[in-house]
Design a protein around this nucleic acid. Structure first.
Lengths: 340, 340
DNA sequence: CTGAAAGCGCTAACAT
DNA sequence: ATGTTAGCGCTTTCAG
């Protein structure tokens, strides 16, 4: 890069103090006289000096590198999280290293731990659905790597998780559909075993029951969070002798599948069938009709995760343990209508 | 991390040679006896030793870190490029650091150069449309940072660019639409000044002319690669006294806008109007009707870019200069039909 | 083909 | 509040 990068020694020489003091200024150590600090800071600015992260890392056993582990089909979500995390990184002098992975690979855990170790990452942020893997979290913990998981429930201690309450979000959707007059509502769940599947489903059912209308067993279909599974489940649901007037698919991909399938069967959405999704992916606003859905506070979660992670790294335990429950928002669009 | 990580010294001690030799083995230096090398390699494997990247970087002025600079609304594209680049990184022992940015910010160049410098990146990959910024490339070059740009034309020397031929792709679309019997074809271009805008438009026009049907000036609209601009341009285009029978929007976002606008105006796609896009974004396969579009060889481009970049870093100039012209592919779906 | 010694740029005890 | 002295783990002259 620069033929002769300015080093801490240059700064030390020019300011007439030892490098130790410069180091203290760089690292915001408290034990520097205000005057000295300012004088040195000025010289640093003039020289446009910035410390070599590798040397710093080598000496302090720190890399100033955060990792992000994910296997998520939703590119927009990933992208949003990356940007959110980075907004914090930039303030605090970290960089973000990405690690997409294959959730189903049996090397998943080894590779993740190895990733963190080999790159000497200061910590990692894990996105759903990988974040639900407790074995991974355990392995990371054992390997002594800091981590924060993005999740829908408290599947770890406060310092290791950032939660958005999908249960109440699904409940809000139930409330909304009921308010539109729907009573027979089909539900397309995610794959069994996933926490988000359960949170969303239970939130929905509970809310429904509060309105006195239980979810009919015939109206519950198990999907796979994929477009195709949305189509398939819709066929099943609509084949019911007493078909639903609305279908809540527990993610947008499936909801878009519902719309496709319904139109294929000659139905009009929302006139013949109301459809709702979950995610507010890019699809939701582009599909015709635009999709009523739920928007998770992705950027906030990402920022919070990064903030917590760095707090852990710095050993600021109480900051790392703040537990804020973020609440998703209901986005009303054109795929749902009142049948009252 | 590990309370006591094994170091090169451990390996040296156990194998009874000096660290210099271990270092040679690690770095595949030629000057090591075959027997010694194998013996040492075995010990390395047994110890599960991997060199500390920071120490290595500090000593060798290398970080084994690649950066990715982009400001692209298409999350899927970014994600694909990330995965492609990473597939190469993993083979060659690099990690990827991401740097989304604001193309319009006047700090763009400073921040990018700073990003590379501060993190001591070995090189960066720049995605369109940021990649079209020659000032950025110039600044990077001057700062002595290796870079490779993803582009639609040869806007830099071979070692600095990976090209997909969008001109011929647009031509292929023209051929296809003409083959379906369309003669009055509307074209929605990208923003003026962008290379891809020009490549796609010229490719399209040239091909059209080969078929003896020039693009009517009234049927050319200037969009902004956004959904909204697609809608707006469609309104203009369809207000024409002799409206087009097909519209080729030069990206999917706009094409989806076209479909929305057309349906709003009571038209059926593809019965009353054929629509085509460019990108094969996730939208293309989900929208109703599914969108005929063009798929760039994104992963290949990404892999090629990473390969070139690392070749440059390693000083393998000829490898860095291979120039392969990648060709996008036409994806036929349901938004276009024959009017013959 | 291999080894000894001198750093790379920074932080961390331990003084003072 | 500031300076001194060792390293962190690796690569690289330069000898042999």
């Amino acid at each position: 890069m620069n033929s002769k990068k300015t080093t801490i020694n240059d700064v030390a020489r020019l300011s007439g103090v030892s490098k130790r003091t410069i180091s203290r200024v760089i690292n915001n150590s408290a034990k520097v006289g205000k005057a000295t600090r300012e004088r040195i800071q000025k010289i640093i600015d003039e020289l446009n000096y910035s410390p070599n992260p590798q040397a710093r890392g080598l000496a302090a056993r720190r890399s100033y590198l955060l990792g992000m582990i994910y296997d998520n089909p939703d590119a927009l979500y990933i992208n949003d999280v990356q940007r959110g995390v980075l907004s914090v990184c930039r303030e605090l002098g970290y960089e973000l290293v990405v690690h997409p992975c294959d959730m189903k690979a049996d090397t998943l855990i080894d590779e993740a731990v190895n990733f963190a170790g080999r790159s000497k990452l200061d910590g990692v942020i894990i996105l759903p659905p990988v974040s639900e893997n407790n074995d991974l979290a355990g392995a990371l913990g054992k390997a002594n790597v800091n981590y924060v998981r993005l999740a829908s429930i408290a599947l770890d201690s406060a310092e290791h998780v950032v939660i958005s309450n999908e249960r109440s979000a699904a409940a809000a959707m139930a409330d909304y559909l009921v308010s539109l007059g729907h009573r027979r509502i089909g539900y397309i769940a995610g794959p069994q075993g996933m926490k988000s599947t359960r949170e969303r489903l239970e939130g929905f059912c509970d809310a429904l029951e509060k309105h006195g209308c239980k979810l009919d067993g015939d109206l519950l279909a198990i999907g796979a969070y994929s477009f195709e599974s949305g189509i398939e489940c819709t066929r099943t649901l609509l084949a019911n002798p007493e078909p639903p007037t609305a279908i809540f698919a527990s993610n947008d991909e499936m909801a878009v599948g519902v719309i496709n399938a319904a139109q294929d069967m000659g139905m009009n959405v929302p006139n013949d069938l109301s459809v709702a999704g979950f995610d507010d992916s890019i699809l939701a606003s582009r599909i015709i009709p635009s999709l009523t859905t739920i928007r998770r506070p992705v950027k906030q979660m990402a920022r919070l995760a990064a903030t917590k992670l760095i707090a852990s790294i710095d050993g600021r335990t109480d900051d790392a343990q703040t537990s804020i429950l973020l609440v998703p928002e209901l986005v009303k669009r054109n795929s749902t209508r009142s049948i009252l």
